Amino acid sequence: MSKKTLMKQAHKIAKKIVKEVGNYMVALKLALKKIWAMAKAGRKRMSDSAFKGAIYELTHKKREYNGPDFFWLGSKGIPVWLMEKNLDPTELWGAQLAYSIGIERETEKAALIVFETDFGNITMWAPKSVIKGF
């Protein structure tokens, strides 16, 4: 795709998703990222189904985990969004299977969380300000 075509497609998508996003510039940024990813994947043209699929992906939040919003370590809770941000999908899956969860170290503002699993330990730093119970 030429840069002109990329921009045209991005503007079309941005116009469709601006209501959900609330700001045209943000909608355009998301659309450009999506279009550029498709162009890098080798797509030469954008069919109607691909166009509708891109709009659907940008307007619907992806959530792989449907459980509670916090994982609990005794009386302390770690937000799932923080785990999704700091752990890759394999580590997130492993953290859900942890048989022991603890705090290895603490600083003034953060705690090093350790998830002990059958596959090894998974560690993650978490700010105390977002952990429930601190």
Rank of each mutant, 00 (worst) to 15 (best):
M1H: 01
M1K: 05
M1P: 01
S2F: 00
K3H: 00
T5A: 14
L6Y: 03
M7I: 13
M7N: 13
K8G: 00
Q9S: 00
Q9I: 06
Q9F: 01
Q9P: 00
Q9W: 04
A10G: 02
K12T: 00
K12F: 09
K12L: 15
A14G: 10
I17L: 03
I17S: 01
V18I: 11
V18H: 05
K19N: 10
K19Q: 06
E20F: 13
E20I: 12
V21L: 03
N23Q: 02
N23A: 07
Y24F: 12
M25R: 06
M25T: 09
V26I: 12
V26T: 09
L28E: 04
K29M: 06
L30F: 07
A31N: 09
L32W: 03
K33T: 12
K33Y: 02
K33P: 08
K34R: 15
K34N: 09
I35E: 08
I35F: 08
K40F: 09
A41W: 07
G42A: 12
R43Y: 11
K44W: 08
K44H: 09
R45M: 09
D48Y: 14
D48K: 15
D48N: 13
S49H: 13
S49A: 12
S49D: 13
A50W: 13
A50G: 02
F51C: 08
F51T: 03
K52S: 05
K52G: 00
E57N: 06
E57V: 01
E57Y: 07
L58T: 05
T59M: 08
H60W: 05
R63C: 06
N66P: 00
G67R: 12
G67D: 11
P68K: 15
P68W: 04
D69S: 14
F70I: 12
F71W: 15
W72K: 15
L73T: 12
G74A: 08
G74W: 03
S75L: 05
S75I: 07
S75C: 00
K76A: 04
I78H: 03
P79D: 11
V80Y: 04
V80E: 05
W81P: 13
W81Y: 14
W81H: 11
M83D: 07
M83V: 13
M83K: 09
K85W: 07
N86L: 07
D88K: 10
D88N: 15
P89W: 04
P89I: 05
T90W: 01
L92I: 02
W93E: 10
W93F: 11
G94A: 12
G94K: 12
A95W: 02
A95Y: 03
Q96T: 10
L97D: 09
L97N: 13
A98D: 06
A98Q: 09
A98M: 06
Y99L: 04
I101N: 03
G102V: 01
G102W: 10
G102H: 09
I103G: 02
E104I: 11
R105M: 02
T107D: 02
T107M: 04
K109P: 01
K109M: 05
L112N: 10
V114W: 05
E116P: 01
E116D: 14
E116S: 15
T117R: 06
F119W: 14
F119I: 13
G120M: 03
G120T: 02
I122N: 01
T123Q: 11
T123H: 04
M124Y: 01
M124I: 07
A126M: 03
A126G: 00
A126E: 00
P127C: 01
K128C: 01
V130C: 13
I131C: 08
I131P: 05
K132Q: 10
G133I: 01
G133E: 10
F134V: 09
